[in-house]
Design a protein around this nucleic acid. Structure first.
Lengths: 333, 333
DNA sequence: TGCACAAATGATAACGCTTGCATAACGAAG
DNA sequence: CTTCGTTATGCAAGCGTTATCATTTGTGCA
């Protein structure tokens, strides 16, 4: 309204509506407690004044900020965006607001982001991936916020978790590759625990199946299409050429497909490719990419629900939700 | 520390450090006002207690939340992610926290998100794209928050803006297409003002160049690869076949390329394709996609800077920043 | 008409911090 | 050893809400 006077306060609304501030407060938080007649008056005045309760003040006394920190490593070319969208939506429906924290891949940034979140007295923190650092885990445990870890299933979650088993995903991939008759898989894995778990799962199952050798190339971040080029070159210089490449992302898989094409290799006959993530584009590619679908939206919804349940004091109920994953068999393998 | 007692308060820290709460407050906000000796004591106690100033309480008195609302239509397959990352980073460096609001494409959702932002008394709002609704614009203008509009250059910005001229982009595209000798462009544009401005710019320049006919197909959202299929079919049923397709995104352009390939058309000889956005993948595709690069990161940085300048009371200085764009000529056109 | 009980409203004390003003401590000059 | 100018600290009044408890108003029924 008036820049100098700042925003209108509840007191002002109360005065003009001829009621006490308590009643105005009730009107906004528990509408059913005020009579229709006064409610109408309050609404009218509030609209005129453009009054909006100050949540900072409110949260101070209720000790509930209705703020949730959303920690994600990155946004560009990230497989988490569907989950983030789902979380923001589901949280919004429940009256919570998401603050976005980009953690990158460094523990330090992660700590800084958690710090600001805690300073804001967020009601909860939803983390993309499992927090590795033990000190951080402990700090969080004692911070009186509910923490939801996603996209993985830690043995001992800080609080609760929703995701899937990367190890199991690796095993399933191995079974699939074996069933298809491929004999010399190349695993392209990123550094990091998630990719590591998939690789370990793959190798465990692979050796259990009594299958032959397998190669492995470690890359920085396997999300990118571009990185495929150098990895492909690396692959070509291996002694025994693999007959299938197991990738950490669809984009990367597509990169391998393109490179294979340029090298005169036909996919999947000369070289098969398995992606990860089931991005829409993977199905539209020619050849279409065989991949593993993870329902990010589902993870997000469950995470928001889990958070909300606990925030409402529902301590019981499931702490760990396995949303699983699904192999999508297409042309590339 | 102690769940029952809740988080430690400033008073507790003060007591244990043998100072007044005012001194502790100063230690956290204006370190230089506190002597080294007491500072050390305070730090020690604060660390032991795990004390972290409650920003809700602080903001209540300073009337500065150090919160900025970031309004984006979507995250998945969105060209804005680089900008969002840049904004969150740049804001974080300056001590601000970003809250994420997904506006979708409906005014109603936009209003709801703005409402929660205003309720949180955010210091600023950074909007992706220009806000169309006049009522919302007015509400924002009188809400005493600095608003930065991005990704476009409105005639009369609410407050300030950083982006580029979609109209000019359309014109440049027309000149390029003409220079390359194409004669029958097909424009695939989304509903909406941004795409509309590009189309208008294209048509204006195209007719100015005295070039021939041009066709247009309107789609819902042109970001997706998948949508290319139906549009391609639509295109094939046109009376005169276009020799170049001007797309609203790289993903869409890639979809057209793939469809063209399946239909036996060679790109760019039988059909040329121009993308938009310069996603990494566009350069790695075969054929590589000719596209227009927009520096989302730059937009983000400038937006954060602009916001910060104004939040600090720097009313003067530029209100509108044109970051331009760049045509990347590659194989597809 | 009066009474009991429910519904609606009011008064007021927090919530945890910041900041202007007042006071105390400390050096450097005189 | 004063005196004065810094530099460090303390006091206390808010900031704009909500929640508890008390009080008033309204309603159905004897």
């Amino acid at each position: 309204m008036n820049k100098i006077a700042g925003q209108p306060r509840i007191e002002e609304v109360a005065r003009r509506a001829g009621v006490s501030s308590a009643t105005v407060s009730r009107f906004f938080s528990r509408r059913d407690l005020v009579s229709d007649k006064t409610a109408e008056r309050i609404k009218k005045v509030a609209d005129e004044l453009g009054y909006r309760p100050n949540r900072l003040a409110g949260s101070l006394v209720t000790k509930r900020s209705r703020l949730v920190a959303l920690l994600v490593p990155a946004l560009t070319d990230s497989p988490f965006n569907a989950m983030i969208e789902a979380i923001v939506d589901a949280l919004g429906e429940r009256g919570y607001t998401a603050m976005l924290g980009l953690t990158g891949n460094r523990d330090e940034t992660m700590d800084r982001v958690i710090d600001t979140a805690l300073g804001l007295r967020v009601d909860g923190i939803i983390v993309t991936g499992v927090i590795a650092d033990t000190a951080t885990r402990d700090a969080l445990r004692s911070a009186n916020v509910t923490v939801v870890e996603t996209w993985g299933l830690p043995e001992k979650p800080i609080d609760c978790a929703v995701g899937f088993s990367h190890h199991e995903m690796g095993r399933m991939t191995a079974r699939f590759v074996h069933r298809r008759g491929y004999e010399r898989p190349l695993i392209v894995a990123a550094r990091g625990s998630r990719a590591g778990a998939r690789r370990d799962g793959f190798l465990a199952e692979w050796s259990k199946l009594g299958a032959g050798e397998s190669e492995e190339i470690e890359v920085e971040i396997p999300y990118g299409f571009g990185q495929a080029r150098s990895v492909f070159r690396q692959m070509r210089s291996l002694e025994t050429q693999p007959d299938v490449v197991v990738c950490g992302s669809d984009a990367f898989a597509m990169g391998i497909v393109v490179e294979a094409g340029r090298a005169g290799l036909s996919v999947p006959d000369d070289l098969a490719v398995v992606g990860l993530g089931n991005q829409p584009i993977a199905g539209d590619m020619r050849p279409s990419i065989t991949t593993i679908a993870i329902d990010g939206g589902r993870i997000g919804q469950e995470a928001a629900k889990l958070f909300h349940d606990r925030a409402e004091g529902n301590e019981d109920g499931q702490h760990i939700i396995d949303v699983g994953f699904q192999l999508i068999e297409r042309e590339s393998a």
